[in-house]
């Protein structure tokens, strides 16, 4: 069973973070991030895009004759806005991928295996694919949840033809007709570099 490949509605409308000259460098970075699963690419992208937007904002403020203080303030404001916008886009794209896996797993019985895949319009995260299986049912009256194990296959295949796979565990719960990701955030003591 393969989940239908369709354009992600959540990705629509999130384009357009940054325009002009810094946007060209940003587009290049996005493509690099999409073609190679570089570690920390998302963080680099967030920093680069907001920095580029901030510099562009400050340049415009300077060009229209604003003072040094106002120029810096406008630059920092634009930078903060760009950062928030990109983080929002990343959250939406990642949420869409979670919904995809949860949707596939929601239709599976315990022990069933199905394939999942994501295709993002916005290349801030790499397209991913793999398999998902249901380990057990959790919950009670009026509450239906599942523990799942899913694999994420790396794009380059190994010498023997089999994709390199990483395995992860998560929980999903049913909300009406929709299955949603149910894994909570780590304890704040274990956030580490997440923040």
């Amino acid at each position: 069973m393969t989940h239908p490949l369709k354009k992600d509605p959540l990705d629509a409308g999130t384009r357009g973070t940054g325009r002009g000259r810094p946007a060209a460098a940003l587009t290049l970075l996005m493509l690099l991030c999409a073609t190679a699963t570089l570690p920390g690419c998302g963080a680099l992208l967030a920093e680069s895009s907001s920095a580029a937007a901030g510099v562009a904002g400050a340049s415009i403020a300077d060009a229209i004759g604003a003072g040094a203080t106002a120029t810096t303030g406008i630059g920092l404001g634009v930078q903060a806005g760009a950062r928030a916008g990109l983080q929002y886009a990343q959250r939406r794209v990642h949420g869409a991928a979670q919904s995809r896996i949860a949707g596939v797993a929601g239709a599976l019985p315990v022990g069933g295996v199905a394939r999942w895949e994501t295709r993002h319009d916005l290349p801030i995260e790499a397209d991913e694919q793999g398999e998902v299986t249901v380990v057990r049912l959790i919950g009670g009256e009026g509450l239906s949840c599942k523990e799942i194990v899913f694999s994420v296959e790396a794009a380059p295949e190994t010498a023997d033809g089999a994709p390199r796979r990483a395995f992860y565990t998560a929980a999903i719960c049913r909300d009406g007709e929709v299955w949603r990701w149910a894994s909570a955030e780590p304890a704040t003591e274990r956030w580490g570099s997440l923040q």
């Binding site: 983080q87 990343q90 959250r91 939406r92 990642h94 949420g95 979670q98 194990v149 899913f150 796979r165 990483a166 395995f167 992860y168 565990t169 998560a170 949603r180 990701w181 149910a182 894994s183 909570a184 955030e185 780590p186 956030w191 997440l194 923040q195």
Partner: peptide, 21 residues
């Protein structure tokens, strides 16, 4: 994973990221 064990706890739901990002 292959011949070794790796951390497998997946990321929290995007709705629960909050200030993690």
């Amino acid at each position: 994973q292959g011949d070794r064990w790796k951390w497998a706890a997946a990321e929290p739901a995007a709705e629960r990221w909050g200030s993690l990002q």
